[in-house]
Write a protein that binds this DNA or RNA. Structure first.
Lengths: 98, 98
DNA sequence: TTCATTTACTTTGTATTTCAAAGTGAATAA
DNA sequence: TTATTCACTTTGAAATACAAAGTAAATGAA
């Protein structure tokens, strides 16, 4: 069990970050506003979690203008996807009894 | 996704509490020392997480003497088991794409 | 041109959480 | 009597999470 627990990634323990990552596993790009709506969080809160994931290089940012409005979208890096998969696998093992 | 996220239980977000609960899902009783060894945590840390789970009534304590030594063991309540299952289901749904 | 609005933040400050380390009381062991 | 073990509790520091308010850059409306 110790070995399983050590694959539980602190960066993904939080609900918001879990939500961000799973959104980015399913959709290649998700915008700031979509995430905000999806996760029901404030701008500041979301921004800080995104920054945390960015710092770990689990996600990357793309900034552009869409319909003449600034638009920031995020994508999971391959490192991020791998790390998230490991985390999920650890959870599954833990749950699946030992 | 909002509805899934709201089933993510804050009480189980932490690694130690995740470990405690999954140990108690598989084994009816687990002692303080077994948990400590299993989870690789200090007494104080473990005690505080156990107390948190106890406060939520997700686990119960049994105190007795075994081989003339004090022994404290823990078990998940049915409420705790249900809550943990819900949490796990939410995680699975989240991961299983949306 | 000026003012308002939107986006995507940053900053600030507070509250909560987490954790290790040290201390404690009750019991047994030497 | 002193030491040791168990299962904590207390203390305190550090990290985390969060809302609220503030901000810059761009567009839109008057």
């Amino acid at each position: 069990m110790k070995d399983i627990l050590k694959n539980i990634n602190k960066a993904f323990e939080n609900k918001v970050r879990l939500g961000v990552m799973s959104a980015l596993m399913v959709n290649e790009y998700v915008s700031f506003n979509e995430l905000k709506e999806l996760l029901n969080v404030t701008d500041g809160n979301l921004a800080s979690h995104l920054k945390g994931l960015e710092k770990e290089e689990y996600i990357v940012v793309y900034k552009e203008f869409v319909d003449r409005k600034p638009n920031t979208k995020y994508a999971a890096t391959s490192v991020g996807k791998e790390a998230f998969k490991k985390h999920i696998e650890a959870l599954e093992k833990l749950i699946g009894g030992k």
